[in-house]
Amino acid sequence: MGYATLDDLLGLAAKIMELHASEASLGKGREWKAAKKQYEAIVKQFNSKRKDYVDTVLVKGDDWSAISDVVENALDNIEASADASWQPAIQYTKDNLIPFLTKEARKSPLTRDAIKWSPVALAVVVVLAYFGIRFTSGVDVSATLESKLGLQQRAAAAEKVIQYHDWMGTRVRRGGWIKGILFWPIEPSDVEVKAADEFASVALGGFVVLAQQNEICGILMVGSGGQLSDEQIKFVDEIAEKIQEANLIWQEPPLMTVLQPIKEKFPCQ
């Protein structure tokens, strides 16, 4: 017997729905057969993990009468805040887990092995772990841009946005349901994205001003189509890190402080 979580089932369900859509778009040739074979393998894996999950939550000695409701409520909570792109995966999990769990919960505890986790504890862990990351990863950007704290907050937001897009492997929201599910808790909010844009404007604007005044030497490759280049993104990330260093000497007004790490990065020999 293995150990399984709702996240395991949701991940497999996302693959199943993606393969189902792919299989439906193919003909009856070799690619269709390969997709069908892979689909059947993932369904088999889901059913195996489903049994592991049921064994995980049905603990001998606990009251099993409410366990199906507890798990369904956990899925409802995830569904309520989920991106629309992975709603089919959640529904598939509901349709194929809850009836099976309800059936198994009606059996005598004597017919099942005792395991470590209680159903209520597991449901709480799943919900709190998933949504807790969302709340604790948020960046406060309430201070004004012109203040020291405001610049530090926006620097943190810029780092979060850059790191998120790096993990997603793209600068737009793509990558399928699985990435959407896994990275939703750390996805930057609209407010954080706006704050990151503000910091990027300050950093890149500082570079332009210093370059025009011949106070720095070097160039930054400019992106196309309104997008920042990789070099510009790396530059903003590095300046954001410098702005948050504890030993940084701040100037008045605080916005002038951004110029110092730019000068250090592009010195004139």
Results as ranks from 00 to 15, higher is better:
Leu6Gln: 02
Gln38Tyr: 09
Ser142Asp: 13
Ala41Cys: 07
Thr144Ala: 11
Lys265Cys: 09
Glu159Lys: 15
Ser189Phe: 03
Gly176Val: 10
Asp197Tyr: 06
Gly225His: 08
Phe131Glu: 11
Asp69Trp: 02
Tyr164Glu: 03
Val258Tyr: 04
Pro185Val: 12
Gln163His: 15
Glu187Asn: 04
Lys160Glu: 08
Lys49Arg: 14
Ile90Gly: 00
Gln91Ser: 13
Ile98Met: 11
Pro119Glu: 04
Val71Cys: 03
Ala203Gly: 08
Gly218Lys: 06
Leu58Tyr: 06
Leu204Ser: 01
Trp250Phe: 13
Phe199His: 00
Leu182Tyr: 01
His20Cys: 01
Val258Gly: 09
Thr257Cys: 07
Asp76Cys: 06
Leu97Gly: 02
Ala89Val: 08
Gly226Ile: 13
Tyr164Asn: 06
His165Leu: 12
Ala14Ile: 06
Leu220Ala: 11
Lys194Met: 09
Cys268Phe: 11
Ala14Glu: 04
Ser137Tyr: 10
Ala13His: 03
Lys33Gln: 14
Ala80Thr: 10
Glu159Asp: 14
Gln163Met: 15
Lys15Trp: 06
Gln45Arg: 06
Trp184Ile: 05
Asn96Ile: 01
Leu9Ala: 01
Ser118Met: 09
Leu128Gln: 15
Phe207Val: 01
Pro253Lys: 13
Val193Phe: 05
Val125Tyr: 11
Ala82Phe: 03
Trp117Pro: 04
Glu187Asp: 00
Phe199Arg: 00
Ser81Asp: 11
Lys103Thr: 08
Leu220Gly: 09
Thr257Gln: 08
Gln152Pro: 02
Val258Ile: 14
Thr111Leu: 14
Leu58Trp: 03
Lys194Glu: 10
Ser48Asn: 10
Ile16Arg: 02
Leu182His: 01
Lys15Arg: 11
Pro185Asn: 09
Ile90Thr: 00
Gln152Cys: 07
Ala129Trp: 05
Phe46Val: 00
Ala35Glu: 06
Ala211Phe: 07
